[in-house]
Design a protein around this nucleic acid. Structure first.
Lengths: 211, 211
DNA sequence: CTAGAATTGTGAAGAATTTCACAAGCGGCG
DNA sequence: CGCCGCTTGTGAAATTCTTCACAATTCTAG
């Protein structure tokens, strides 16, 4: 029950969780793998296989209890708790993220913002004050920060990541278009817009067969 | 030479292209699959296999010519041209994207911005003026727009997508946390922050084995 | 209590992707 | 010119992921 779980499976679990939350809002009490599959853009067998990696949550003949399965998935994904995060870089991306409603809704609590630009230091964001880049370590330590969001230019990203890890960050959400090097036990999730744009560009281009 | 290319391959091609651009900046003229692999976070065999889907670009014993391979990859990914885009939704995400330097650098040219909020309509962004949501179709048609960026709340995303496709958009970059339904020939790339956060949360959680 | 309809959980088959391993090509050097 | 070191391109093997198919389980109705 503890084999390595593939990325695709995790992404699908996210989809299922979102579908379940919609169903919870509708007061639906049970759901079949078939229905989950339709909402998650996959097949019923895949849904069952994905879930089976983590245990046995359904009732044969009946399906899954919506609130219970949602709870299990939250637990599996680790979003049944609050994650304390520091935002590194108070630029456009940082700002967008800071105000992103689903961010807080998912239990991600921003306990600090730092930026290298002296113009920005001291500005208020919500009830936080932007602090200088040199405060990164103390924000992480005193704020008991779990993870760092790297929203700085590519050139500064590696240094920020090194410092965040050294100060105790356990994971990194990286918006800089750079492959970060971190110790194996520190997971990094990359959000790479350039890559997404190129994937889209390829998909469109591929369509037309002409030169 | 025209088998279906996997998403993973495309993502890796993006990495290779970025690595090649770094090398171009350094005036490096050739590179081996081994070096590309290190920078792209994969293996030499994988690099060669990925490239082999599209042809034969290297010289045995020598490696790949950096500028040539970069050009080929740009061509393959479809970023050797300009893509005309309309930005739907002038919120934080839209704004971050609009100012994202790599966006223009990759040949994505924003030819229009629309928003449903009357407060925002009429504001200037760069040399564009935000137009009302109802202008979406005319912006797409008169601007010869190739693709639409959907940066609106989840509830509005499907309608926007339908209208964009009907008006002639050939692809969609979707920031709304919704599974869009579009005709098969219109590729959609999802940028789903909630999903990325959940993946990170899972990866961190997985580390500790205790209950 | 039994039969029947529905739906899960899961081995096994099938498909796709990654890794391996090596023949073949290229350039340099004596 | 012929050998040598290096590196590609690519079948074949290994691994991983997805789909299939069905026994097992649950609920409902009669």
């Amino acid at each position: 029950m503890s084999r390595r779980i593939s990325d695709s499976t995790i992404r699908r679990l996210s989809h299922y969780l979102r579908a379940l939350e919609d169903l919870e809002a509708d007061r639906t009490t049970t759901v079949s793998s078939e229905q989950l599959a339709r909402r998650g853009g996959t097949t019923a067998a895949q849904v069952r296989k994905d879930l089976s990696h983590f245990g046995s949550f359904g009732k044969r003949g009946l399906g899954y209890a919506v609130p219970e399965l949602a709870g299990r998935l939250r637990r599996i994904l680790g979003v049944d708790r609050t994650w304390r995060v520091v935002l590194v870089g108070a630029g456009r991306i940082g700002s967008a993220l800071f105000e992103y409603p689903n961010f807080a809704a998912r239990g991600f609590e921003c306990v600090g913002v730092v930026d290298a630009d002296p113009e920005k230091v001291g500005q208020r964001w919500g009830d936080l004050v932007i602090r200088p880049a040199s405060d990164l370590e103390s924000v992480i330590r005193s704020g008991k920060v779990d993870l760092a969001i790297v929203a700085v230019p590519a050139g500064a990203a590696q240094e920020v990541a090194d410092r965040a890890v050294a100060a105790g960050a356990r994971g990194i959400l990286n918006f800089a278009p750079t492959q970060l090097r971190v110790p194996d036990h520190v997971p990094v999730t990359d959000v790479n817009l350039v890559m997404e744009m190129e994937a889209l560009s390829f998909a469109i281009t591929k369509g037309r067969k002409g030169s």
